[in-house]
Design a protein around this nucleic acid. Structure first.
Lengths: 124, 124
DNA sequence: CCGTACCGATTAAAGATGTAATCTAATAAC
DNA sequence: GTTATTAGATTACATCTTTAATCGGTACGG
């Protein structure tokens, strides 16, 4: 349905900040990015903001001198799209092997295991 | 450790065939690709094979007129790398929300749920 | 007012990706 | 043997991605 535009690796970094803090100004976004990874150059971040606006993934409203950005696509939609793409690409679309991989691969705390088993019992 | 080179979306299609059938000739690979998606052009596939060889993801041995390709990186390593990248990018590296997403999102058959719960009980 | 600093917009350039035509050497068919 | 196929290698080129520098306007300090 919704056909979210493709969001690249680096664009995700930007979007995660916006989703978490919207509406937010460029400076705020840049600060958050640099906190996670000091090598972020402000100009680079600005360029990405621009591209994301052009792609209609971000919108903004002028607030005095600066812009306040907000997401135009819901995070959940993007998570769905990325998850499906990953699942298809790496696991041929088969959910069970994928879940098995993660359960086996990454170590889960007993607490996490309990929670997951509960989740499997009543899927929300 | 192993530092598998980055494998793109389309390259994965090629690699999945090779992993499944290696060692295999170009024609065999192209046939398998076309079976999954008829729009694969042989020249395109050849170009990808070449790139993958250059990237040292594929190797080959000359078998008479043609090559027999084989993978130089193990599928499991690539699955690991892609999974980690996906997990970080989309779920900030948190396993539980990711698993919860899939369990909630995609519908699992009762049988699959049983198997997963068993898996959670004894990993491996 | 005048310049400077800051904003977003535009432009740039290098690397990756997707797609395929062309080139060259070997082989298979006359 | 000469030609037509076939294989892989090389080249081409448009698009996307990452990374910034530069441009043009505006607000602010002096």
């Amino acid at each position: 349905m919704s056909k979210v535009p493709r969001i690249s690796e680096t664009e995700w970094e930007i979007m995660k900040v916006v989703w978490a803090q919207e509406p937010c100004a460029a400076g705020q976004i840049i600060a958050a990015l640099q906190q996670a990874d000091a090598s972020w150059h402000p100009r680079t971040a600005k360029a990405f903001l621009n591209r994301l606006v052009k792609k209609k993934v971000l919108g903004f409203r002028k607030e005095g001198r600066a812009y306040l950005y907000r997401a135009l696509v819901r995070q959940e939609e993007c998570v769905d799209a990325a998850s499906e793409s990953f699942l298809d690409r790496v696991f041929g679309g088969s959910l069970k092997p994928m879940l098995a991989h993660f359960v086996r691969r990454e170590k889960l705390s007993p607490e996490e295991i309990r929670e997951l088993r509960r989740l499997l019992k009543n899927p929300e």
